[in-house]
Write a protein that binds this DNA or RNA. Structure first.
Lengths: 252, 252
DNA sequence: GAGCATTTGTGCGTATGTATC
DNA sequence: TGATACATACGCACAAATGCT
């Protein structure tokens, strides 16, 4: 098939080049990506249903799904069963510095922030955590696994360790208050500052991807940080994984 | 072939479980990854040749190559034609803050730093660069494409823009001096500081991967920063891509 | 510079086990 | 039960890059 170009095209409908080297789903994905990039489909907006897109491009719904899967893989859209497919919002600026506080950061960006406790345990510190907290390996610590959301969208997941016995029962306080800052106040820590911050990047494992509602392999910003109380004592070692598709760190 | 297990195995040779669900190349990759992780194969050291590994594990060289490809994909090893396959060094700590300087950072980590100019042009600023430099879009700028290495290993690649006409001829100075800091001195800028730093993460495109000698899709830390001179004038907008496998950002 | 050994990179053909239709 | 497709694994040969003399 050399050329079967259509001369009678409806205004906004792009004609698909069938039988060429380009697969149909790729052309559809590119067309939608263009519309997202140009702002024709604005951030946060809902895409037409798969059926509607199938009709518009004159293909089977499976083909549209293939295209949408490719866009989801690139982090441009996100599909939720029963709700629809949505254009991902632009990246939230997330300031990091001496006084980083998650809830403040997110609400500054005009979104609702929530921290959810997934699991907690009092266990002996692994070598890495022990070094970060400045205690002997095997010293008991509270370890918490959390997920943070902005407007319902998972933004980050963190593994937080605090030394025992000082912070015995911290997990319950965090689960109740939904904020590290407020839970610290409950334990008499009125203020705390960032001692060190290390930033790496890697692809999401399947489990991490599931927790963050991402495609596996999508880029994560891995931030390891240590917080100290006003007396300089190390009170918190955190390893946070941020979905790089949804957020950008801003050094301040 | 149900079972052809060898009863006479040389001491340190792990027998591969053939015919089970585990593929041979995956077992070999796991075994080598363990040895790297445990330090039995130290960072920077050369692995046995593919032929030697094939003999050791009792498989074809192709099977070993498959295993090594998997390790290279994970960033654990790196192969160079004619030289051999080497265990990747651990991640270099790279401090970022108000006074970030590449050469200082790397040499502080005990490595030899080098900046190489790949390309340069005087072109109108794209909207993003214009905003970063605080000039009107289309204003002419010097744009340079660079690659930085530590001990010969590519660490980062950057796209650096400086406003014209103030920095006309900057690229030649940089190519000659191999350092932004020294080239700035040549233009009468004795000092400069970081105005803003934004950090994201994504997978390497094939071109970026080629420039950094990485597998495509490997994680990159994308750092966009703006530098100002002592009078507060914006003099440099940089978008740097760091190979996250080789480096870790440290906020200071 | 030429020449050589070493080592990784690549191509092709073949066989086998395991799904899927 | 075939037919087909795919990933795995093997064997051989040669190309290309590196390091050394």
């Amino acid at each position: 098939m050399t050329d079967a170009r259509d001369t009678s095209v409806t205004p906004s409908d792009p004609p698909l080049l069938r039988g060429a080297g380009l697969t149909a789903w790729r052309q559809i994905a590119d067309a939608l990506a263009d519309e997202i990039g140009s702002g024709a489909l604005s951030a946060g907006s809902q895409l037409p249903t798969e059926a509607a897109l199938a009709a518009r491009f004159g293909v089977n719904r499976h083909t549209v799904r293939r295209a949408l899967a490719a866009l989801a893989e690139r982090g441009l859209v996100r599909a939720t069963q029963g709700r629809g497919t949505f254009v991902e919002r632009g990246q939230i600026p997330y300031p990091i510095g001496r006084r980083t506080r998650f809830s403040e950061n997110i609400s500054r960006a005009g979104r609702e922030a929530r921290g959810e406790l997934i699991a907690a345990a009092e266990i002996p510190a692994d070598p890495e955590t022990a070094e970060a907290l400045g205690v002997a390996p095997g010293t008991p610590v509270v370890e918490m696994l959390t997920v943070h959301r902005a407007d319902g969208t998972p933004i980050s997941t963190a593994r937080i360790a605090l030394p025992l016995p000082r912070f015995s029962g911290f997990a319950a306080a965090y689960a109740r208050l939904g904020s590290i800052t407020r839970a610290f106040k409950d334990f008499g820590v009125e203020d705390y500052t960032r001692l060190s911050t290390r930033i790496g990047a890697r692809g999401a494992t399947p489990e991490e991807a599931a927790r963050l509602d991402l495609a596996p392999g999508r880029p994560l910003l891995a931030v390891a940080s240590v917080n100290v109380d006003p007396e300089g004592r190390r009170i918190e070692a955190t390893r946070t994984l941020f979905a790089a598709d949804r957020l950008e760190l801003v050094v301040e």
